[in-house]
Design a protein around this nucleic acid. Structure first.
Lengths: 196, 196
DNA sequence: ACCTGAACACCGTTCAAGT
DNA sequence: ACCTGAACACCGTTCAAGT
């Protein structure tokens, strides 16, 4: 057993180059057109055959996953760090602000990310997992300290923050209210005290 | 001046029939496929030429507007009624629950409705206006009575509630949490008391 | 006055043929 | 082992030709 069956086989040089070309161009095209960008356009501008794009990225979500992986990993790491360094509520708020920015980086990304929650086949699902768990831990911590109400879970929070990002996506006119709307939602997460 | 220039000219019988056929079928197809339904499919199943569909409904939003008009008018009327009959906060909450249901009636509708806020050309924009104003009045009333914080306006509220509807749209797994998420958001609208 | 469907310019996805 | 692009089955939108 000198070679692991899951060992990454060395790619041919042209394949490696094409993969990188596609990814670089995809970043540009998705920035321009959003997550529903024309894949044909990506292939054209990357100067590869359409089949080559599909060989490297069998689905649109596979391409998005490659585009977002770094960002997701960064958010997961940031959650862990904040969990050590900041008080529960502050840590959660700071992380959510970061997440809100990341999940709205491209037009349509909020939708792609939220839809992926229900679709376990999507490569985005797995890519988001560690980040989601990091956020969920910060939430649980803030709930344990009594800063956040107990009747919401990580998925609820994830969905709510993504939804606020989606608002700016759909209606540019409200985009400047995004931060404020997020803080309104977070205010709703305060513990319910029975003050009648 | 016996005839108003804006008077509705009598339509030819076949035109009238086609209009109705398209609308009836569109209701079915949009229920099946959502607001991004294939217009070709609508024309096919309504057994009219594709051009006939475009003649009656020049844009997708024009078709959606015809589909939703009644519902919007009902919501506008309901806002007025609740403004007379119920205490400020209860009226607002009840109306928002109604609105939440209506704005999520079809898959994709939340998006179509919110996008229309920024697009004044869309026929949906005008169709929503009276309803939005009705909601805004209920909001202002609840703010005047001190039940709702002052730093949000009708557009903010409209966007937030639509966004909660969108969540269920994207992730069926969370659909059953919709009511709860809406109540979390509404809790965030409570006045900010300086309780440190 | 209204209807029709072909025509145009796009998609996503697959796959036989090439190197 | 990988690349290519034609082929297929769809779109939305327009518009000349018909009745």
């Amino acid at each position: 057993m000198t070679t692991d069956s899951a060992a990454p086989r060395a790619q041919r040089a042209d394949a490696q180059r094409n993969y990188q070309r596609i990814l670089d161009i995809a970043r540009i095209v998705v920035a321009e057109q959003g997550t529903e960008a024309s894949l044909r356009d990506v292939a054209r501008r990357a100067e590869v055959g359409l089949g080559t794009l599909y060989r490297h990225f069998p689905t649109r979500d596979a391409l998005l996953e490659a585009l977002m992986r770094e960002g997701f990993e960064r958010l997961a790491a940031r959650a862990a760090a904040l969990g050590e360094s900041a008080p529960p509520l502050a840590a959660l708020r700071e992380w959510l602000a970061d997440f809100a920015v990341g999940s709205a980086r491209y037009r349509g990304l909020s939708g792609s990310i939220l839809a992926t929650l229900s679709d376990e086949e999507s490569p985005l699902h797995a890519a988001c997992l560690a980040m989601r768990e990091g956020g969920a831990r910060l939430l649980a911590r803030a709930q344990a300290s009594g800063d956040i109400r107990d009747d919401i879970d990580g998925t609820d929070l994830f969905a709510l923050v993504t939804a606020v990002g989606w608002i700016a996506d759909q209606a540019p006119a409200i985009a400047r209210r995004q931060e404020h709307l997020l803080s309104v939602v977070l205010d709703g997460l305060a513990p319910r005290n029975a003050v009648a």
